[in-house]
Each structure stands twice: as C-alpha cells, then as structure tokens.
Design a protein around this nucleic acid. Structure first.
Lengths: 141, 141
DNA sequence: TATTGTTATACTCTATAACTATA
DNA sequence: TATAGTTATAGAGTATAACAATA
C-alpha cells in the first residue's frame, strides 16, 4: 500500500484541485452567458429538477434561508422562477421553475460538458474504476 | 466506444459534481476554522508557495486586481501577510506570507486531506489510471 | 410555542472606472 | 504614454438577529 503522501498521490490530489477549479470556472462562465450569477444558476438547476420550499433550497445550498429570498427574488424578476403557495401549509412558498426557467436550466446543463467528452473516450472498465474511486472518496471522509 | 451520455458516464459526471461540492465545502470549512474567508485562504495558500506582486495574485485568482487590495489588507491586518517594496520596480508591491501566515497555510493544507486518505488506499495501477484520466479531462476541453 | 419566509444589518467578494506614483 | 496599485462605487452573496403569518 503506497503512502499517503507519495508523489503519485500528491500528483492526483493536485489534479483534483485543477478539476475543481476548472469545473467552477466553466460553471460561472456558463451562468454569466445567461446573465446569471453562480448562486442563481445553482438554484435554478435545483428547481428545474423539482419545485422546492424556500427552506429546502437553503438546505441544499448549505446556506441560511434568508439568503434565498434575494436569489429567488432576482430569478423571479427575470421570469425564470415563480413563488407558489403550498396548499398544505400556508407558511410555505414553493419556488417553481417557469417554462423559460426550464429552458435556461437545460442550456446550462448542456454547457457543462467538459467532463463528459473525455469520459466518453474511456473504456467501460476505466470508467468503472473511476466511478468506484470517486464513490470511495466521497464515502471515506 | 460508449456514448457520451450512457448511464455510467452520467453517473461519473454526477460523482465529479459531488466531489467538487465536497471539495469546496471542506475548503470553506477549513478556512472558517481559521477565521478566514475562502478567498483569503486561497491568496494565503498562493503566497505560502512564493511571494507575488499584487497583479500576479489577481491573475492566479482570475479576478480584477482591485479586489486583491482588500483581501491582502485583511490578511495583513491579521499579521499573516506583509507588503514589501520591489527594489527592481517601485510601482510593484510584493505580497509575502509571514511566519504566522506560513503556519496557517500549512494547517489549511493538512485540513484538506479528504482526497488523500482514500487515494492512498488505491493501488499504484489504479492511481495511475486516475491520474491519466484527470490529465485527459483537463487537456481535452 | 415552534416554524416559514422575510426584513434589516453588516461584512466580504466582485467588476468597473478613476486616480497616484512610478516607468 | 503605459503600468502597478489603490480608491470609490455599486451589486451580489453571506450570516445574524428580529419580525409577521401560520402551524
């Protein structure tokens, strides 16, 4: 078993850092191309998947609920999101992506292809190794 | 050759997104444990590697130079960084990590171990596959 | 009483533009 | 005139605390 700090491991750690930086760069860039901030794009992506109460959005983004008010305000001002009452609990407001919001979210998803291209060039065996490793990385800590 | 959107590839793409999210979470958490913001921690990490002119920091962080003034101000106020004149060009200010800054940067580095633990548990062959894949991912786009 | 969303406040990061001191 | 760093300004994200409506 190789050591925790051998050169190959350090190299891989550095590469992961580079992937993270690259992922963020491209995400911000894709968001900006739609005049959205990163936070707005993340919320829109969540809501395109399914409607959520304000509080749930904050949990998903791991931030305070009070922040979501402004982000959804701005998305709503752009016509990408709407606030709907929850019939089951009148305290709750469900944030829902509009048709335009769904379209924008789809375009954002397509723009984030940088990872998909090279992955598709790998054999099934290689991708399986990668999947298992990533799962281990996420499960271990 | 598998398709660009087959289930295994999509699964891996999703896992990469999770790794990115996790990486950021832990980075912010480690920074916060030293009463630093993410941006401050990133600048400190850069300067712990070697001193840089203000402008170079902005290039590394891919932001406007004017932003760096405030970030370095706050690091300097905490005694983690100093501004030194550049003898070669009196317009330039070199930002240098202090002894305390070097220590903090080292602690931040150690805190970001989540990737290293599981990586060290992989065989050399597996880590080599991973390294090559990550390099391909970064080079392809 | 507890919870949901909001408001108010303060701080940081961000880009843009104008300024200063050097070159 | 061009460049390095700064200042001024405005918009956005963030946490904290207090508030209204509802449970």
């Amino acid at each position: 078993m190789p050591s925790r700090t051998d050169p190959l491991t350090l190299e891989v750690v550095e590469l992961i850092g580079a992937v993270v930086a690259r992922y963020h760069e491209e995400y911000e860039e894709a968001a900006a191309s739609h005049q959205l901030t990163g936070a707005q794009a993340r919320v829109l992506a969540l809501l395109a998947f399914d409607p959520l109460p304000m509080r749930r959005i904050a949990q998903k983004l791991k931030c305070e609920p009070s922040n979501i008010t402004g982000i959804v305000d701005r998305l709503e001002g752009r016509g990408l999101v709407e606030r709907h009452p929850d019939p089951a609990d009148r305290r709750v407001k469900l944030a829902v992506a509009t048709e335009a919001g769904m379209q924008t979210a789809g375009q954002l998803r397509d723009a984030l292809d940088f990872a998909r291209e090279p992955l598709a060039g790998l054999s099934t065996a290689e991708r399986t190794v990668l999947r298992d490793l990533l799962q281990r990385m996420l499960g271990a800590a």
